[in-house]
Design a protein around this nucleic acid. Structure first.
Lengths: 217, 217
DNA sequence: GACATAAGCGGACTTCAGTCCACATCCTCT
DNA sequence: AGAGGATGTGGACTGAAGTCCGCTTATGTC
């Protein structure tokens, strides 16, 4: 199967439409105004207690401008964490092992779950607030495809292609979503470490159950 | 551990506020009108292509009546599948083994996952359509507590109380939600049987990994 | 059977996400 | 530098969810 090399200047499956290379000056000014206004509102009244009109007013722009930039509320909230999310994806693809390439697949898988959960701690609220109303849902978001590809690849390297490998990859990815994470964190009141340990146990179970016979004791 | 017998006349943690025993005749008439109107609309235009005003008009009642009965769109859609959902819960609690009480816990667990997935096939769209906008989300819904208690109990009976037992129960429950199910079914285009088999593999992995040492080969 | 009252009813109203389009602004090319 | 076209802007508008409250009606009591 031919593997297409990623274009040199852009991260494939990036989480958000990156700013065009030639962004008009006014557009850039307004984009920054909108982002900082949104951050200010989140800080001041909480993440779901302001309307898009509030954002437009706070930023001193019209609603049309808001929606031209960020297609909907979901994307606007996502954009707030665009930088850390990019950084996370970069670590994943080009970073140092065990999260980045180079470590054995099982180790990388564990590192991924861990890193993802630690990323969610502190960022999940933005993702969920965006998913709450109308916008693109979890599975429809391009970034989900990236994470899924990553986990499925590592899992295949660990346990080989089996009839359930893809399903198990999804099962491992499941608890790494914003909603399940916040459920564990807020409703079940688990600590971040408890969640991480739980996920490691799950991953170990999946790896052990279908591991190549040679590795069984 | 003492096991509390369920109260004789009411199913605990029922999925919806049941109709009061003394329902006024007009209220009952309107409730039935609303439900059948909603079913008709779903049939005619699809589950998310009608507004609450449409329902009110089709049923020949005012919006206030609609919202007095069914607090929001989410609950209205849920109410459409209230009967099969009740039946499913009854099977779970009082039905014949292996789904109902009497079978060994591991077998009951598998039966639960299977039954849940088969229930979702055909009903998940109603649940998800309700969750899409505003209403009570998955983890907040009372019925989730019932399912979780059930799975956690069975899992404890299988692998004992461990630091991760609760987490693993949630991990098993995760793929049994409407959203993950529809993702598998629609986006990944798996058949119902493939999903069931995948889930059984997941459950086996979890059971095997933490199984009491005596049962290890 | 008439009355009192609590329960039910209906639709105008509010709020908010997202769309649309006439107008303004900026960048490029000559 | 100026013209012209592409791009960006703003706010009026639409459609839908959910609330509110004065009116209506069923039901239990005398």
């Amino acid at each position: 199967m031919p593997h297409v090399a990623p274009p040199p200047f852009e991260l494939p499956m990036s989480s958000s439409p990156r700013t065009p290379e030639h962004e008009r000056a006014d557009a850039r000014r307004n984009r920054e105004r909108i982002l900082s206004a949104t951050a200010r509102l989140v800080e001041r009244v909480g993440i779901d207690c302001f309307s898009m009109d509030d954002v437009a007013a706070e930023a001193g722009v019209g609603k049309g401008t808001l929606y031209r930039r960020f297609g909907d509320r979901s994307s606007l909230l996502r954009a707030l964490i665009s930088d850390p999310e990019q950084a996370f994806q970069d670590e994943l693809i080009r970073g140092a092992p065990p999260l980045g390439p180079g470590a054995p697949p099982a180790e990388r898988l564990h590192a991924f779950g861990d890193a993802m959960l630690r990323f969610l701690d502190g960022h999940a609220v933005y993702i969920q607030a965006g998913e709450l109303l109308g916008g693109v849902k979890r599975y429809g978001h391009p970034v989900h495809a990236l994470y899924r590809t990553h986990v499925a690849l590592l899992l295949r390297q660990c346990i080989g292609e089996g009839p359930h490998t893809e399903y198990l990859a999804d099962a491992l990815l499941g608890p790494l979503g914003a909603e399940p994470f916040l459920y564990q964190r807020k409703l079940r009141e688990l600590t971040l470490d408890e969640i991480c340990n739980g996920w490691h146990a799950l991953a170990d179970a999946v790896l052990a159950a279908s591991a190549p016979p040679a590795t069984r004791p």
